[in-house]
Computed example of a mutant assay.
Amino acid sequence: MTTPDEQPVKSSTDRVDTAARRATEDPVAALALLPGIAASIRQDAADGMFDAWELSTAVDENTGEPVVPEALFHHLHTTAGLTATWPVGNAGLVHVYGYLFSLADTPYGLKRERWLDAELATAYGERTLFHAEALRGHAVSVTPLARITDAARTLLAEHTVREERIGPVRARIAIGRRAASGPFALAYAIDRGEGERLVTTFPVSSPDQTLAAIDAEPPRLRWNAVE
Results as ranks from 00 to 15, higher is better:
93 L>G: 11
99 Y>V: 12
123 A>F: 02
174 A>R: 00
117 D>Q: 11
98 G>R: 00
58 A>E: 09
128 T>V: 15
106 T>D: 02
162 R>F: 01
158 E>A: 10
112 R>T: 12
111 K>A: 12
159 H>G: 01
156 L>V: 07
54 E>C: 07
92 G>D: 10
135 L>V: 12
168 P>S: 11
149 T>A: 05
68 V>S: 08
180 A>W: 04
118 A>I: 07
58 A>L: 03
170 R>M: 12
159 H>I: 03
118 A>T: 06
152 A>Q: 06
167 G>Q: 02
178 R>S: 14
138 H>Q: 13
151 A>M: 06
54 E>F: 06
146 A>W: 00
95 H>S: 13
120 L>E: 00
56 S>G: 12
54 E>H: 09
162 R>P: 00
115 W>L: 15
124 Y>R: 14
100 L>W: 02
175 I>D: 01
112 R>H: 14
168 P>L: 01
95 H>Y: 11
120 L>V: 04
162 R>E: 02
147 R>M: 08
161 V>N: 05
170 R>A: 12
122 T>H: 10
137 G>D: 10
81 G>F: 02
157 A>K: 11
146 A>M: 01
165 R>Y: 04
113 E>R: 11
107 P>I: 09
153 R>I: 14
140 V>G: 03
89 G>Q: 02
72 L>A: 09
77 H>I: 03
83 T>V: 08
111 K>P: 13
93 L>N: 14
136 R>W: 09
68 V>K: 00
128 T>G: 15
97 Y>E: 14
130 F>D: 02
100 L>M: 12
151 A>I: 03
86 W>S: 05
66 P>S: 11
64 G>S: 07
119 E>V: 01
135 L>W: 05
101 F>S: 04
61 E>H: 03
173 I>C: 02
90 N>A: 08
166 I>T: 07
164 E>Y: 06
123 A>L: 07
106 T>K: 04
176 G>V: 06
148 I>E: 10
111 K>Y: 15
123 A>T: 01
53 W>K: 07
64 G>P: 11
142 V>S: 00
60 D>Y: 02
178 R>L: 14
139 A>N: 09
102 S>V: 03
123 A>Q: 05
74 H>R: 09
150 D>S: 13
93 L>V: 12
134 A>N: 10
159 H>N: 10
60 D>M: 01
80 A>C: 15
160 T>Y: 03
68 V>L: 15
85 T>G: 15
133 E>G: 07
165 R>E: 14
169 V>W: 00
165 R>F: 08
55 L>T: 09
155 L>S: 00
122 T>L: 11
71 A>T: 14
121 A>Y: 09
130 F>E: 03
161 V>M: 08
64 G>H: 05
66 P>H: 03
62 N>H: 06
70 E>L: 10
87 P>H: 01
79 T>S: 13
106 T>L: 14
153 R>W: 13
156 L>N: 04
137 G>F: 08
129 L>C: 04
168 P>V: 06
122 T>A: 05
173 I>F: 00
157 A>T: 13
99 Y>I: 03
144 P>D: 08
105 D>L: 14
181 S>I: 11
150 D>F: 06
